[in-house]
């Protein structure tokens, strides 16, 4: 009985469950043929560049084992860079290099790593260790984001990112993920990153959730995380909404980082965005999704969609 009660409570709150997301949203709104556009980060990047959406600059790609030895050349002029698998998911297989000391590289957490180790990691990426189904993969070497000082006081290593869920091109919910010591600099809520809900209309941070607890300050820096307003919020919403036109996916999660120099950069697009955003926002997705699918599925352009979101999803 308590289980049924919990189910009805979840349903009253409009919580979207995994089965519901899979059956109705990812299967119903996303056509299979468009998945490769977002699953392959190289294609995502080039499509975005064509459409004029800013992405972190690509220094090079490594596609075959032979090219692994070219790594020093690719990063010769960079002290900071990121290596990531083109088909990775959930942040697996990403290495962030923040500096170079002689023939050693310094990772974001300060640990030194040899060139050999780095090349071995790339070999693993190429052989498909991090890709779905173990298919051979490509490694990307790209610009390492210098995040906007706005998050400086409330993140621990790693890169804080902003996730916006977009349904039929209308932004419906968003959050900021702040890395902590516990999450080892990763922006993954399972592993202890801080999830902060955002007011979709204004881009102001609401309460934060750490694992299952509501908190008001960052666990490592002790600075308050609520009430911070993200600058140029409407630009971010517009960017997220445009992904619908670029990738033709009706239900997606857009990950954006704020760079000190280049402003908002699109990091990646996810065709199966997770459900934790509901915990961070302490609100269910379903009422918002229903509103969009009933009333906003054929809005004419990006501006109309963003306006709809700002009007209806004010917290």
């Amino acid at each position: 009985m308590t289980i049924l009660k919990a189910y009805s409570q979840l349903s009253e709150l409009g919580i979207l469950g995994l089965n519901h997301r899979n059956a109705v949203y990812t299967l119903g709104f996303n056509e299979r043929r468009f998945y490769p556009l977002v699953d392959d980060k190289v294609r995502t990047k080039s499509l975005c560049s064509e459409a004029g959406v800013a992405v972190p600059a690509l220094y090079g790609t490594i596609e075959i084992e032979r090219q692994v030895r070219d790594l020093p050349h690719i990063v010769a002029e960079q002290t900071e860079f990121v290596i990531k698998p083109a088909h990775g998911s959930g942040g697996d297989g990403i290495i962030v290099i923040k500096g170079q000391v002689k023939d050693k590289y310094r990772k974001a957490n300060g640990v030194m790593i040899s060139l050999e180790d780095l090349q071995h990691h790339i070999s693993n990426v190429l052989s498909g260790m991090y890709s779905l189904g173990g298919a051979t993969d490509t490694a990307l070497i790209e610009y390492c984001v210098n995040f906007d000082p706005i998050f400086e006081s409330i993140s621990y290593q790693g890169v804080p990112d902003i996730r916006i869920i977009v349904c039929c091109g209308v932004p419906v919910m968003s959050m900021v993920r702040l890395p902590t010591r516990m999450s080892d600099g990763k922006a993954n809520l399972h592993q202890g990153a801080l999830g902060v809900g955002l007011d979709l209309a204004t881009g102001t941070t609401l309460t934060a959730v750490l694992l299952n607890d509501v908190v008001t300050e960052h666990p490592d820096t002790a600075n308050p995380v609520t009430g911070i307003k993200i600058p140029n919020w409407t630009d971010l919403l517009t960017l997220a909404s445009r992904c619908y036109d670029i990738f033709h996916l009706g239900y997606l999660g857009v990950d954006i980082v704020l760079d000190k120099e280049y402003g908002p950069l699109l990091l990646e697009v996810n065709a199966r965005p997770g459900l934790n955003i509901q915990i961070a926002n302490q609100a269910g997705l379903l009422p918002r999704l229903n509103l969009v699918t009933n009333r906003a599925c054929d809005l004419p352009d990006v501006h109309a969609r963003v306006a709809f979101a700002i009007e209806h999803f004010h917290t």
């Binding site: 289980i3 189910y7 979840l10 709150l13 089965n19 509901q278 915990i279 302490q282």
Partner: peptide, 21 residues
């Protein structure tokens, strides 16, 4: 079951936080 869109049992624990509101 392939079209079962209801909650999973462990999602009660996952969204515990929201239930306690």
């Amino acid at each position: 079951l392939g079209r079962y869109t209801g909650y999973r049992l462990l999602e009660i624990r996952r969204f515990q936080r929201l239930l306690e509101q």
